[in-house]
Design a protein around this nucleic acid. Structure first.
Lengths: 235, 235
DNA sequence: CGGATTCTTGACGAGAATCAAGAGTTGTGG
DNA sequence: CCACAACTCTTGATTCTCGTCAAGAATCCG
Protein backbone atom coordinates (compact mmCIF):
# COMPACT_ATOMS: atom_id res chain seq x y z
CA UNK A 1 0.00 0.00 0.00
CA UNK A 2 1.74 3.11 -1.22
CA UNK A 3 1.01 6.52 0.27
CA UNK A 4 0.26 9.50 -1.86
CA UNK A 5 0.17 13.19 -1.16
CA UNK A 6 -2.68 14.72 0.84
CA UNK A 7 -5.09 17.08 -0.87
CA UNK A 8 -6.66 14.13 -2.56
CA UNK A 9 -9.84 15.88 -3.59
CA UNK A 10 -8.45 16.34 -7.06
CA UNK A 11 -8.57 12.56 -7.28
CA UNK A 12 -12.36 12.38 -7.05
CA UNK A 13 -13.65 11.71 -10.57
CA UNK A 14 -16.23 14.19 -11.81
CA UNK A 15 -19.24 11.85 -11.79
CA UNK A 16 -18.34 10.36 -8.41
CA UNK A 17 -21.36 9.29 -6.36
CA UNK A 18 -21.24 8.52 -2.65
CA UNK A 19 -24.24 8.01 -0.41
CA UNK A 20 -21.90 8.53 2.50
CA UNK A 21 -20.58 11.92 1.39
CA UNK A 22 -24.07 12.99 0.35
CA UNK A 23 -25.05 13.09 4.01
CA UNK A 24 -22.55 15.91 4.53
CA UNK A 25 -22.67 19.56 3.50
CA UNK A 26 -20.35 20.68 0.68
CA UNK A 27 -18.06 22.56 3.10
CA UNK A 28 -17.86 19.46 5.25
CA UNK A 29 -16.97 17.34 2.25
CA UNK A 30 -14.20 19.78 1.39
CA UNK A 31 -12.94 19.64 4.97
CA UNK A 32 -12.81 15.87 4.77
CA UNK A 33 -11.11 15.72 1.40
CA UNK A 34 -8.51 18.27 2.51
CA UNK A 35 -7.10 15.89 5.11
CA UNK A 36 -7.69 12.63 3.23
CA UNK A 37 -4.84 10.43 2.13
CA UNK A 38 -5.26 8.69 -1.18
CA UNK A 39 -3.95 5.15 -1.24
CA UNK A 40 -3.63 2.75 -4.13
CA UNK A 41 -4.97 -0.76 -3.45
CA UNK A 42 -3.89 -3.89 -5.25
CA UNK A 43 -5.70 -7.17 -5.85
CA UNK A 44 -6.40 -9.49 -2.91
CA UNK A 45 -5.18 -6.97 -0.40
CA UNK A 46 -6.79 -7.14 3.04
CA UNK A 47 -7.81 -3.57 3.84
CA UNK A 48 -9.03 -4.28 7.32
CA UNK A 49 -9.01 -7.43 9.38
CA UNK A 50 -11.73 -8.22 11.90
CA UNK A 51 -10.55 -8.08 15.48
CA UNK A 52 -7.74 -5.63 14.80
CA UNK A 53 -7.92 -2.15 16.35
CA UNK A 54 -10.02 0.18 14.21
CA UNK A 55 -7.52 2.80 13.22
CA UNK A 56 -9.00 4.31 10.10
CA UNK A 57 -12.14 5.35 8.31
CA UNK A 58 -11.97 5.02 4.55
CA UNK A 59 -13.89 5.50 1.37
CA UNK A 60 -13.61 3.38 -1.74
CA UNK A 61 -12.71 5.59 -4.68
CA UNK A 62 -12.28 3.05 -7.47
CA UNK A 63 -12.19 -0.74 -7.59
CA UNK A 64 -14.23 -3.29 -5.70
CA UNK A 65 -13.99 -4.92 -2.28
CA UNK A 66 -15.65 -7.86 -0.57
CA UNK A 67 -16.88 -7.57 3.00
CA UNK A 68 -17.01 -10.81 4.93
CA UNK A 69 -16.50 -12.42 8.29
CA UNK A 70 -14.02 -15.17 8.95
CA UNK A 71 -15.08 -18.10 11.06
CA UNK A 72 -13.03 -20.22 13.36
CA UNK A 73 -13.66 -23.19 11.06
CA UNK A 74 -12.02 -21.29 8.21
CA UNK A 75 -15.17 -20.48 6.27
CA UNK A 76 -15.84 -17.01 4.96
CA UNK A 77 -19.28 -15.55 5.48
CA UNK A 78 -19.83 -13.16 2.61
CA UNK A 79 -21.69 -10.04 3.68
CA UNK A 80 -21.62 -7.60 0.76
CA UNK A 81 -19.70 -6.02 -2.04
CA UNK A 82 -18.25 -2.57 -1.69
CA UNK A 83 -18.41 -0.29 -4.72
CA UNK A 84 -16.91 3.18 -5.32
CA UNK A 85 -18.49 5.67 -2.94
CA UNK A 86 -18.98 3.17 -0.11
CA UNK A 87 -17.36 3.96 3.22
CA UNK A 88 -15.89 1.49 5.71
CA UNK A 89 -14.18 1.33 9.07
CA UNK A 90 -17.07 2.91 10.93
CA UNK A 91 -15.87 1.38 14.17
CA UNK A 92 -13.15 4.05 14.12
CA UNK A 93 -15.79 6.68 14.77
CA UNK A 94 -18.73 4.90 16.31
CA UNK A 95 -17.02 3.55 19.38
CA UNK A 96 -13.70 5.17 19.89
CA UNK A 97 -11.24 2.50 21.00
CA UNK A 98 -12.74 -0.33 19.04
CA UNK A 99 -11.94 -3.20 16.76
CA UNK A 100 -13.12 -3.92 13.26
CA UNK A 101 -16.15 -6.19 13.11
CA UNK A 102 -15.53 -7.50 9.60
CA UNK A 103 -12.74 -8.24 7.17
CA UNK A 104 -12.53 -6.41 3.88
CA UNK A 105 -10.51 -7.55 0.91
CA UNK A 106 -9.86 -6.12 -2.53
CA UNK A 107 -11.30 -8.04 -5.46
CA UNK A 108 -10.39 -5.40 -8.04
CA UNK A 109 -7.51 -3.01 -7.78
CA UNK A 110 -8.26 0.67 -7.29
CA UNK A 111 -7.83 3.44 -4.77
CA UNK A 112 -9.24 4.56 -1.44
CA UNK A 113 -9.32 7.74 0.63
CA UNK A 114 -8.14 7.26 4.19
CA UNK A 115 -8.63 9.15 7.45
CA UNK A 116 -6.83 7.81 10.49
CA UNK A 117 -8.33 8.02 13.97
CA UNK A 118 -6.57 11.28 14.84
CA UNK A 119 -7.98 12.91 11.71
CA UNK A 120 -11.41 11.53 12.55
CA UNK A 121 -11.41 12.98 16.05
CA UNK A 122 -10.50 16.39 14.68
CA UNK A 123 -13.10 16.14 11.93
CA UNK A 124 -15.91 15.15 14.27
CA UNK A 125 -15.85 18.51 16.03
CA UNK A 126 -15.60 20.41 12.76
CA UNK A 127 -18.25 18.41 10.90
CA UNK A 128 -21.38 17.97 12.99
CA UNK A 129 -22.92 15.76 10.32
CA UNK A 130 -20.06 13.30 10.25
CA UNK A 131 -21.26 11.14 13.11
CA UNK A 132 -24.75 11.38 11.71
CA UNK A 133 -23.52 10.19 8.31
CA UNK A 134 -21.73 7.29 9.96
CA UNK A 135 -24.78 6.35 11.98
CA UNK A 136 -26.90 6.42 8.87
CA UNK A 137 -24.45 4.22 7.04
CA UNK A 138 -24.37 1.75 9.91
CA UNK A 139 -28.15 1.64 9.98
CA UNK A 140 -28.37 0.99 6.27
CA UNK A 141 -25.76 -1.70 6.66
CA UNK A 142 -27.68 -3.35 9.48
CA UNK A 143 -30.92 -3.10 7.57
CA UNK A 144 -29.37 -4.68 4.50
CA UNK A 145 -27.80 -7.43 6.54
CA UNK A 146 -31.11 -8.39 8.12
CA UNK A 147 -32.59 -8.49 4.66
CA UNK A 148 -29.92 -10.80 3.31
CA UNK A 149 -30.28 -13.01 6.34
CA UNK A 150 -34.01 -13.28 5.72
CA UNK A 151 -33.38 -14.04 2.09
CA UNK A 152 -31.09 -16.93 3.00
CA UNK A 153 -33.60 -18.33 5.49
CA UNK A 154 -36.74 -18.19 3.42
CA UNK A 155 -35.87 -18.22 -0.26
CA UNK A 156 -34.72 -21.04 -2.49
CA UNK A 157 -31.38 -21.04 -4.21
CA UNK A 158 -32.97 -19.87 -7.45
CA UNK A 159 -34.73 -16.94 -5.79
CA UNK A 160 -31.58 -15.89 -3.98
CA UNK A 161 -29.61 -16.09 -7.17
CA UNK A 162 -32.13 -13.95 -9.03
CA UNK A 163 -31.92 -11.35 -6.34
CA UNK A 164 -28.14 -11.34 -6.34
CA UNK A 165 -28.20 -10.85 -10.10
CA UNK A 166 -30.52 -7.87 -9.77
CA UNK A 167 -28.65 -6.33 -6.85
CA UNK A 168 -25.26 -6.81 -8.46
CA UNK A 169 -26.50 -5.27 -11.67
CA UNK A 170 -27.55 -2.20 -9.73
CA UNK A 171 -24.42 -1.96 -7.65
CA UNK A 172 -21.68 -3.10 -9.99
CA UNK A 173 -23.16 -3.26 -13.46
CA UNK A 174 -22.50 -0.91 -16.37
CA UNK A 175 -24.60 -0.48 -19.46
CA UNK A 176 -23.72 -1.72 -22.92
CA UNK A 177 -25.61 -2.11 -26.20
CA UNK A 178 -26.68 -5.68 -25.33
CA UNK A 179 -27.73 -4.86 -21.78
CA UNK A 180 -26.25 -4.48 -18.33
CA UNK A 181 -22.82 -6.05 -17.98
CA UNK A 182 -21.86 -7.43 -14.58
CA UNK A 183 -18.25 -8.47 -14.13
CA UNK A 184 -18.59 -11.41 -11.79
CA UNK A 185 -17.38 -14.97 -12.07
CA UNK A 186 -19.80 -17.77 -11.31
CA UNK A 187 -17.82 -18.38 -8.17
CA UNK A 188 -18.34 -14.84 -6.96
CA UNK A 189 -22.03 -14.92 -7.76
CA UNK A 190 -22.37 -18.17 -5.86
CA UNK A 191 -20.57 -16.63 -2.91
CA UNK A 192 -22.88 -13.64 -2.82
CA UNK A 193 -25.95 -15.83 -3.14
CA UNK A 194 -24.68 -18.17 -0.42
CA UNK A 195 -24.80 -21.37 -2.43
CA UNK A 196 -22.37 -23.79 -4.04
CA UNK A 197 -20.67 -22.95 -7.29
CA UNK A 198 -22.52 -25.82 -8.95
CA UNK A 199 -25.99 -24.75 -7.97
CA UNK A 200 -25.25 -21.25 -9.19
CA UNK A 201 -23.85 -22.52 -12.49
CA UNK A 202 -26.87 -24.73 -13.10
CA UNK A 203 -29.38 -21.94 -12.72
CA UNK A 204 -27.32 -19.44 -14.67
CA UNK A 205 -26.97 -21.97 -17.51
CA UNK A 206 -30.69 -22.58 -17.44
CA UNK A 207 -31.33 -18.84 -17.68
CA UNK A 208 -28.94 -18.62 -20.57
CA UNK A 209 -30.82 -21.39 -22.40
CA UNK A 210 -34.06 -19.52 -21.69
CA UNK A 211 -32.45 -16.39 -23.11
CA UNK A 212 -32.73 -14.36 -19.94
CA UNK A 213 -29.01 -13.61 -19.94
CA UNK A 214 -25.75 -14.26 -21.71
CA UNK A 215 -22.74 -15.73 -20.03
CA UNK A 216 -19.12 -15.12 -20.75
CA UNK A 217 -15.99 -15.98 -18.89
CA UNK A 218 -16.04 -13.80 -15.79
CA UNK A 219 -19.12 -11.82 -16.64
CA UNK A 220 -22.80 -11.96 -17.49
CA UNK A 221 -24.93 -9.68 -19.63
CA UNK A 222 -28.53 -8.93 -18.78
CA UNK A 223 -30.81 -7.58 -21.51
CA UNK A 224 -33.47 -6.85 -18.89
CA UNK A 225 -33.82 -7.13 -15.15
CA UNK A 226 -37.57 -7.59 -15.02
CA UNK A 227 -37.66 -11.38 -15.41
CA UNK A 228 -35.36 -11.74 -12.43
CA UNK A 229 -37.40 -9.37 -10.35
CA UNK A 230 -40.36 -11.60 -11.14
CA UNK A 231 -38.52 -14.66 -9.86
CA UNK A 232 -37.59 -12.79 -6.70
CA UNK A 233 -41.01 -11.49 -5.84
CA UNK A 234 -43.49 -14.23 -6.62
CA UNK A 235 -43.64 -17.59 -4.81
CA UNK B 1 -50.31 -0.30 27.77
CA UNK B 2 -51.02 1.61 30.98
CA UNK B 3 -48.97 4.62 31.98
CA UNK B 4 -47.51 4.94 35.41
CA UNK B 5 -46.02 7.84 37.30
CA UNK B 6 -42.56 9.15 36.44
CA UNK B 7 -39.72 8.72 38.93
CA UNK B 8 -39.54 5.10 37.99
CA UNK B 9 -36.13 4.45 39.46
CA UNK B 10 -37.77 2.96 42.53
CA UNK B 11 -39.03 0.28 40.18
CA UNK B 12 -35.56 -1.04 39.36
CA UNK B 13 -35.11 -4.26 41.32
CA UNK B 14 -32.02 -4.35 43.54
CA UNK B 15 -30.04 -6.93 41.56
CA UNK B 16 -30.92 -5.38 38.20
CA UNK B 17 -28.21 -5.80 35.56
CA UNK B 18 -28.07 -3.85 32.33
CA UNK B 19 -25.16 -3.77 29.92
CA UNK B 20 -26.73 -0.69 28.44
CA UNK B 21 -26.91 1.31 31.67
CA UNK B 22 -23.44 0.09 32.66
CA UNK B 23 -21.99 2.21 29.88
CA UNK B 24 -23.22 5.32 31.70
CA UNK B 25 -21.94 7.01 34.86
CA UNK B 26 -24.11 6.71 38.01
CA UNK B 27 -25.20 10.38 37.78
CA UNK B 28 -26.20 9.81 34.16
CA UNK B 29 -28.19 6.74 35.11
CA UNK B 30 -30.02 8.78 37.73
CA UNK B 31 -30.74 11.50 35.17
CA UNK B 32 -32.22 8.91 32.86
CA UNK B 33 -34.32 7.21 35.49
CA UNK B 34 -35.65 10.55 36.70
CA UNK B 35 -37.45 11.18 33.41
CA UNK B 36 -38.32 7.58 32.56
CA UNK B 37 -41.89 6.41 32.34
CA UNK B 38 -42.58 2.92 33.59
CA UNK B 39 -45.04 1.00 31.47
CA UNK B 40 -46.60 -2.38 32.07
CA UNK B 41 -46.49 -4.74 29.08
CA UNK B 42 -48.85 -7.62 28.48
CA UNK B 43 -48.43 -10.84 26.52
CA UNK B 44 -48.19 -10.70 22.73
CA UNK B 45 -48.07 -6.94 22.71
CA UNK B 46 -46.15 -5.36 19.83
CA UNK B 47 -43.84 -2.84 21.45
CA UNK B 48 -42.48 -1.45 18.24
CA UNK B 49 -43.32 -2.19 14.65
CA UNK B 50 -40.73 -2.02 11.87
CA UNK B 51 -41.26 0.85 9.48
CA UNK B 52 -43.09 3.03 11.99
CA UNK B 53 -41.48 6.30 13.11
CA UNK B 54 -39.02 5.69 15.94
CA UNK B 55 -40.53 7.65 18.75
CA UNK B 56 -39.08 6.09 21.84
CA UNK B 57 -36.06 4.49 23.41
CA UNK B 58 -36.86 1.87 26.00
CA UNK B 59 -35.36 -0.59 28.40
CA UNK B 60 -36.81 -3.94 29.33
CA UNK B 61 -37.28 -4.09 33.12
CA UNK B 62 -38.97 -7.45 33.54
CA UNK B 63 -40.40 -10.01 31.15
CA UNK B 64 -39.15 -11.20 27.79
CA UNK B 65 -39.47 -9.96 24.23
CA UNK B 66 -38.75 -11.38 20.79
CA UNK B 67 -36.99 -9.27 18.17
CA UNK B 68 -37.75 -10.21 14.60
CA UNK B 69 -38.32 -8.87 11.13
CA UNK B 70 -41.49 -9.38 9.17
CA UNK B 71 -41.23 -10.33 5.54
CA UNK B 72 -43.56 -9.48 2.73
CA UNK B 73 -44.34 -13.19 2.36
CA UNK B 74 -45.61 -13.23 5.95
CA UNK B 75 -42.67 -15.08 7.48
CA UNK B 76 -41.03 -13.88 10.65
CA UNK B 77 -37.25 -13.79 10.75
CA UNK B 78 -36.30 -14.29 14.37
CA UNK B 79 -33.33 -12.17 15.38
CA UNK B 80 -32.93 -12.45 19.15
CA UNK B 81 -34.54 -12.55 22.54
CA UNK B 82 -34.62 -9.50 24.74
CA UNK B 83 -34.08 -10.06 28.46
CA UNK B 84 -34.33 -7.62 31.39
CA UNK B 85 -31.66 -4.95 31.06
CA UNK B 86 -31.69 -4.92 27.26
CA UNK B 87 -32.44 -1.63 25.52
CA UNK B 88 -34.32 -1.11 22.26
CA UNK B 89 -35.50 1.59 19.92
CA UNK B 90 -31.99 2.84 19.17
CA UNK B 91 -33.19 4.38 15.94
CA UNK B 92 -34.77 7.08 18.11
CA UNK B 93 -31.30 8.32 19.00
CA UNK B 94 -29.00 7.11 16.29
CA UNK B 95 -30.60 8.85 13.35
CA UNK B 96 -33.03 11.45 14.49
CA UNK B 97 -36.12 11.28 12.29
CA UNK B 98 -36.01 7.55 11.65
CA UNK B 99 -38.07 4.43 11.55
CA UNK B 100 -37.73 1.22 13.51
CA UNK B 101 -35.75 -1.44 11.70
CA UNK B 102 -37.29 -4.40 13.52
CA UNK B 103 -40.46 -5.50 15.21
CA UNK B 104 -40.47 -6.37 18.90
CA UNK B 105 -43.15 -8.37 20.60
CA UNK B 106 -43.74 -9.43 24.19
CA UNK B 107 -43.48 -13.16 24.89
CA UNK B 108 -43.78 -12.78 28.66
CA UNK B 109 -45.56 -9.99 30.45
CA UNK B 110 -43.51 -7.51 32.39
CA UNK B 111 -42.55 -3.85 32.41
CA UNK B 112 -40.39 -1.40 30.50
CA UNK B 113 -38.90 2.02 31.05
CA UNK B 114 -39.66 4.48 28.27
CA UNK B 115 -38.08 7.69 27.02
CA UNK B 116 -39.79 9.44 24.15
CA UNK B 117 -37.84 11.33 21.50
CA UNK B 118 -38.18 14.69 23.25
CA UNK B 119 -36.74 13.23 26.44
CA UNK B 120 -33.95 11.64 24.43
CA UNK B 121 -32.94 14.89 22.80
CA UNK B 122 -32.78 16.60 26.18
CA UNK B 123 -30.83 13.71 27.69
CA UNK B 124 -28.27 13.57 24.91
CA UNK B 125 -26.87 16.99 25.83
CA UNK B 126 -26.90 16.19 29.55
CA UNK B 127 -25.43 12.70 29.23
CA UNK B 128 -22.38 12.65 26.97
CA UNK B 129 -22.12 8.89 27.28
CA UNK B 130 -25.64 8.22 26.11
CA UNK B 131 -24.91 8.25 22.40
CA UNK B 132 -21.78 6.25 23.11
CA UNK B 133 -23.83 3.66 25.00
CA UNK B 134 -26.28 3.46 22.13
CA UNK B 135 -23.49 3.08 19.60
CA UNK B 136 -21.95 0.31 21.65
CA UNK B 137 -25.26 -1.46 21.90
CA UNK B 138 -25.80 -1.19 18.16
CA UNK B 139 -22.33 -2.56 17.51
CA UNK B 140 -22.88 -5.50 19.79
CA UNK B 141 -26.19 -6.12 18.10
CA UNK B 142 -24.60 -6.04 14.65
CA UNK B 143 -21.78 -8.27 15.78
CA UNK B 144 -24.20 -10.80 17.22
CA UNK B 145 -26.33 -10.73 14.13
CA UNK B 146 -23.40 -11.50 11.86
CA UNK B 147 -22.54 -14.37 14.15
CA UNK B 148 -26.03 -15.84 14.01
CA UNK B 149 -26.04 -15.44 10.25
CA UNK B 150 -22.79 -17.36 10.00
CA UNK B 151 -24.15 -20.04 12.28
CA UNK B 152 -27.16 -20.53 10.03
CA UNK B 153 -25.01 -20.71 6.93
CA UNK B 154 -22.34 -23.10 8.09
CA UNK B 155 -23.68 -25.23 10.91
CA UNK B 156 -26.06 -28.14 10.87
CA UNK B 157 -29.38 -28.11 12.64
CA UNK B 158 -27.94 -30.02 15.56
CA UNK B 159 -25.04 -27.62 15.99
CA UNK B 160 -27.33 -24.60 15.81
CA UNK B 161 -29.65 -26.14 18.33
CA UNK B 162 -26.82 -26.83 20.75
CA UNK B 163 -25.72 -23.27 20.49
CA UNK B 164 -29.20 -21.91 21.04
CA UNK B 165 -29.49 -24.09 24.13
CA UNK B 166 -26.23 -22.71 25.52
CA UNK B 167 -27.01 -19.10 24.63
CA UNK B 168 -30.54 -19.27 25.99
CA UNK B 169 -29.28 -20.79 29.21
CA UNK B 170 -26.95 -17.85 29.64
CA UNK B 171 -29.46 -15.20 28.68
CA UNK B 172 -32.74 -16.53 30.08
CA UNK B 173 -31.90 -19.46 32.34
CA UNK B 174 -32.06 -19.56 36.10
CA UNK B 175 -30.40 -22.06 38.40
CA UNK B 176 -32.13 -24.86 40.27
CA UNK B 177 -30.96 -27.94 42.18
CA UNK B 178 -31.16 -30.11 39.04
CA UNK B 179 -29.39 -27.62 36.78
CA UNK B 180 -30.14 -24.57 34.70
CA UNK B 181 -33.82 -24.17 33.90
CA UNK B 182 -34.73 -22.51 30.60
CA UNK B 183 -38.38 -21.60 30.11
CA UNK B 184 -38.79 -22.13 26.40
CA UNK B 185 -41.23 -24.25 24.45
CA UNK B 186 -39.88 -26.48 21.71
CA UNK B 187 -41.49 -24.14 19.25
CA UNK B 188 -39.57 -21.15 20.61
CA UNK B 189 -36.31 -23.05 20.64
CA UNK B 190 -36.89 -24.09 17.04
CA UNK B 191 -37.61 -20.48 16.11
CA UNK B 192 -34.40 -19.25 17.69
CA UNK B 193 -32.38 -22.02 16.06
CA UNK B 194 -34.00 -21.33 12.67
CA UNK B 195 -35.32 -24.81 12.05
CA UNK B 196 -38.65 -26.62 12.00
CA UNK B 197 -40.37 -27.61 15.21
CA UNK B 198 -39.92 -31.25 14.30
CA UNK B 199 -36.20 -31.13 13.77
CA UNK B 200 -35.79 -29.35 17.09
CA UNK B 201 -37.99 -31.87 18.90
CA UNK B 202 -36.08 -34.78 17.43
CA UNK B 203 -32.70 -33.59 18.63
CA UNK B 204 -33.98 -32.49 22.02
CA UNK B 205 -35.61 -35.90 22.50
CA UNK B 206 -32.38 -37.58 21.50
CA UNK B 207 -30.47 -35.50 24.05
CA UNK B 208 -33.00 -36.41 26.68
CA UNK B 209 -32.51 -40.10 25.92
CA UNK B 210 -28.75 -39.57 26.17
CA UNK B 211 -29.30 -37.86 29.52
CA UNK B 212 -27.88 -34.51 28.46
CA UNK B 213 -31.06 -32.68 29.49
CA UNK B 214 -34.55 -33.13 30.85
CA UNK B 215 -37.63 -31.94 29.06
CA UNK B 216 -40.87 -30.69 30.51
CA UNK B 217 -43.81 -28.92 29.02
CA UNK B 218 -42.56 -25.45 28.17
CA UNK B 219 -39.10 -25.79 29.65
CA UNK B 220 -35.88 -27.76 29.64
CA UNK B 221 -33.40 -28.41 32.43
CA UNK B 222 -29.67 -28.64 31.77
CA UNK B 223 -27.46 -30.35 34.35
CA UNK B 224 -24.41 -29.09 32.49
CA UNK B 225 -23.65 -26.94 29.49
CA UNK B 226 -20.32 -28.49 28.56
CA UNK B 227 -21.67 -31.30 26.35
CA UNK B 228 -23.50 -28.75 24.23
CA UNK B 229 -20.48 -26.54 23.97
CA UNK B 230 -18.66 -29.57 22.65
CA UNK B 231 -21.27 -30.13 19.95
CA UNK B 232 -21.04 -26.47 18.99
CA UNK B 233 -17.28 -26.27 18.73
CA UNK B 234 -16.07 -29.48 17.14
CA UNK B 235 -16.90 -30.53 13.58
C1' DC C 1 -64.15 -34.88 31.92
C1' DG C 2 -63.72 -32.61 27.54
C1' DG C 3 -60.78 -29.34 25.09
C1' DA C 4 -56.72 -27.03 24.08
C1' DT C 5 -51.83 -27.05 24.07
C1' DT C 6 -47.63 -29.16 23.60
C1' DC C 7 -44.78 -32.83 22.41
C1' DT C 8 -43.42 -37.25 19.78
C1' DT C 9 -42.42 -40.33 16.00
C1' DG C 10 -42.51 -42.19 11.48
C1' DA C 11 -42.74 -41.99 6.41
C1' DC C 12 -41.74 -39.39 2.62
C1' DG C 13 -39.78 -36.12 -0.62
C1' DA C 14 -37.60 -31.76 -2.29
C1' DG C 15 -33.59 -29.06 -2.47
C1' DA C 16 -29.12 -28.49 -2.63
C1' DA C 17 -24.15 -30.01 -1.53
C1' DT C 18 -20.58 -33.06 -2.98
C1' DC C 19 -17.88 -35.64 -6.12
C1' DA C 20 -16.15 -36.76 -10.59
C1' DA C 21 -15.01 -35.97 -15.13
C1' DG C 22 -14.61 -33.34 -18.88
C1' DA C 23 -15.26 -29.19 -22.14
C1' DG C 24 -14.32 -24.50 -23.21
C1' DT C 25 -11.38 -20.18 -22.64
C1' DT C 26 -7.45 -17.43 -21.92
C1' DG C 27 -2.78 -16.51 -21.47
C1' DT C 28 2.22 -17.75 -21.85
C1' DG C 29 6.56 -19.36 -23.44
C1' DG C 30 9.13 -21.66 -26.79
C1' DC D 1 2.03 -19.34 -34.21
C1' DC D 2 1.44 -23.40 -31.80
C1' DA D 3 1.29 -26.07 -27.57
C1' DC D 4 0.55 -26.35 -23.04
C1' DA D 5 -0.97 -24.91 -18.53
C1' DA D 6 -4.15 -22.61 -15.75
C1' DC D 7 -8.36 -21.18 -15.03
C1' DT D 8 -13.39 -21.19 -15.61
C1' DC D 9 -17.45 -23.34 -16.63
C1' DT D 10 -20.68 -27.50 -17.39
C1' DT D 11 -23.23 -31.65 -16.45
C1' DG D 12 -24.56 -35.92 -14.42
C1' DA D 13 -24.82 -39.18 -10.58
C1' DT D 14 -25.13 -39.65 -5.84
C1' DT D 15 -25.99 -38.58 -1.05
C1' DC D 16 -27.76 -36.30 2.83
C1' DT D 17 -30.00 -32.99 5.56
C1' DC D 18 -34.05 -31.28 6.85
C1' DG D 19 -38.89 -29.74 6.01
C1' DT D 20 -43.58 -31.43 5.41
C1' DC D 21 -47.42 -34.17 6.51
C1' DA D 22 -50.02 -37.41 9.34
C1' DA D 23 -51.41 -39.37 13.42
C1' DG D 24 -51.37 -39.89 17.89
C1' DA D 25 -49.64 -39.40 22.93
C1' DA D 26 -48.89 -36.64 26.94
C1' DT D 27 -49.92 -32.71 29.73
C1' DC D 28 -52.47 -28.95 31.51
C1' DC D 29 -56.76 -26.32 32.59
C1' DG D 30 -61.28 -24.87 33.57
Amino acid sequence: MRLKKRAAFAALPPGFKSTFLDALTPPEVRALLRVARSVRISLHEVLQHEGEPARRLWLLGTGRVAVYRLRRDGNKLFLRWGAPGDAFGFATIVRAPARYLVTIETVQEGSILVWDSADCQALISRCPNLTKAVNWAVSRYLDGLIDVFGMCQFQTAEERLARVVVDSAGQLGHSSPEGIVVDLKNEEIALAAHMSLFTATRHLSKWQRTGLLKKYRGKIVLPSLSPFETITSDT
